[in-house]
Design a binder for these strands. Structure first.
Lengths: 332, 332
DNA sequence: GTCGGGATCTTACAAATGTCAAGTTTGATT
DNA sequence: AATCAAACTTGACATTTGTAAGATCCCGAC
């Protein structure tokens, strides 16, 4: 049930050996296959899996590939300490307007922002051996974990700022913290409760648990917190995961909500909306976040309005965003 | 004259952008070419250059791919603190006995050992922020520098343990130290004198220089030293670089020499031979090295006997070696 | 101005890689 | 022992990548 990562050292080892032969020794896939006594097709898949799972990571050592002027404009507009902006792609090709291009851009954005966030995390950990890292959830955070391999930080602690999903996806807060802790050698801590309680009363009960209180104390001590912004549409991750129903989405929008972060819904001015869901979410609230060094991660043009709204709240001190969304926010 | 690295930010930037589009954004070379307005052939070359120059580095995050039993045997045989052994390739393919296979293995060995050494360096720097790293020269060290990108160590110092070549190759001690310093953000220091002085008397004059003395003081403080072993044949790097003449090679062998490290020639027992060249070499001597945490780097089966001899000297405390050479040393 | 020389482009082709459908093995389940 | 599903192999194919040869272009040296 714990998926891929736990499924066995066997294939881990094979992936590593294949990757070694291919990337280090310079074998081609056919030679590597012969060497390991398996088929080329399998080598091919192993290599793909190895990259996907972050076992082999490719890093570009370059001071700058981002969009300096755009970063500066966003920084000053929202009063941020810093802003990192990945390169923009614009339309990928003349022909394809639709689905495919959208989907492609989306995937690119997660990876790009995740990678940039991982670089930021790396710097933070190097400057601060005993850092306490707060994290959110989502595909951007997942990508961040995949690009955090090779960072060593045995004295760091990672703490989820929110409860867990029920489904065990790779972008579950639990998995995010776990992956980061494993990658860096640090400690992982969780909020051992659901993301959204069944009622406000239940929330109180859950919050009162001693283990939850302990986790929240640690969460408030975070030296940096990486949280991602969610949009509020039928195609958003919250909906796909069925964390909220279609009806709830409608009522949230009616209450003025335009997006969420860690399950807290906010309006166009970045203020939490008055909606019963907000009284059931278990996560560090805006007031706590304001005391924290919050880095907002924004990936994908669908989040344009939600990101703009959240940034207006003044909660974020830093921003990592993909170029395309950044340009749209600035109306360019 | 200063080659590639200095030739311009122009192509650096282009390489980085191409690498970004290809590796991060997931464009294929054709799409990336269109995006940057250049031909696919150029993208292809840019990407190859980017990998070659270490601008993009590929890392495999795996605890172990080496040869545990072989490492243990080498470790105990030579009384080492540790031994790392890269995977062996054996004969690459049934058909090709000759040149091509040899050459291939050779290139593989440099890369593999360089990469493993870089990993060791990384660990050392993480455990020891103010480390002083002594280095030798050669193709293995060059590969080590290429795989050291992305390590941050602003308080570390790198010091060459020997004088410079006259030609400015990428494996010149000067270049090795420079590359490491640049990659990690640390300080680079050199012995600003030739590798081999024209006479023993000249050597004394050069050694007496204040700047040389200062450098040697630092070199003796090294917390770890990475030096590579050279074989003593017509095809060795020393000969190819014309650091020694064919006649000198013959007389060295006559004096019992089987290899060198940093230009110091030793016999089958690992003791420095009595030869005039050894009185002209400017490098940290065996006595100083014995006070230092010396890691020997051995890449390539040609170095089998030289490596065995050097290890007998007891100067080395650690060993990084490619699997094929390791197996031959053990007679397997 | 003009004469190299090097880098880039164009074009074409060879090699390597990614992918798929269909058959086979393997091992767990019943 | 029979059955099933997952993982793997086989063989074939489409796409992508690597590379070479000649044509051009650009730039500095003379």
């Amino acid at each position: 049930m714990l998926e891929m990562s736990a499924e066995g050292h066997e294939s881990q080892m094979l992936m590593a050996r294949a990757a070694w032969l291919y990337y280090v020794a310079g074998f081609n896939q056919e030679a590597a296959a012969k060497r390991l006594g398996i088929t080329r097709a399998r080598i091919n898949k192993l290599l793909a899996d190895a990259r996907e799972s972050g076992l082999v990571s490719i890093q570009i050592n370059q001071a700058y590939v981002g969009l300096l002027p755009v970063e500066e404009e966003l920084r000053s507009r929202y009063g941020l300490d810093f802003c990192v902006c990945t390169p923009e792609l614009g339309q990928t090709d003349a022909g394809d307007q639709g689905e495919a291009a959208e989907e492609f851009l989306r995937g690119y954005a997660f990876r790009a922002v995740g990678m940039a966030a991982a670089a930021h995390l790396k710097r933070h950990l190097q400057a601060n051996r005993t850092a306490v890292i707060g994290t959110g959830w989502g595909r951007t955070l997942e990508q961040m974990t995949l690009n955090s391999t090779g960072i060593s930080a045995p004295d760091a602690r990672f703490i989820s700022l929110m409860g867990s999903l029920t489904a065990n996806s790779a972008y579950n807060p639990f998995e995010v913290v776990h992956a980061l802790a494993r990658a860096t050698g640090g400690e992982g801590h969780f909020l051992p409760v659901p993301f959204i309680a069944d009622s406000a009363a239940d929330r109180q009960v859950l919050l009162a648990q001693r283990s939850v209180q302990q986790a929240l104390v640690l969460a408030r001590e975070a030296t940096v917190a990486y949280i991602s912004i969610g949009e509020l549409t039928e195609t958003s991750l919250l909906r796909r995961q069925e964390m909220i129903s279609a009806d709830q989405l409608v009522s949230l929008r009616a209450a003025g909500a335009v997006g969420d972060t860690n399950g807290l819904f906010f309006d166009a001015a970045g203020s939490p909306v008055d909606h019963e869901l907000n009284s059931r979410t278990i996560a560090l609230g805006f007031d706590d976040l304001r005391q924290t060094n919050v880095i907002a991660l924004v990936a994908g043009v669908a989040k344009q309005h939600a990101a703009d709204a959240f940034l207006r709240s003044g909660v974020a001190r830093g921003l990592v965003i993909d170029g395309d969304t950044a340009l749209r926010i600035l109306g360019k």
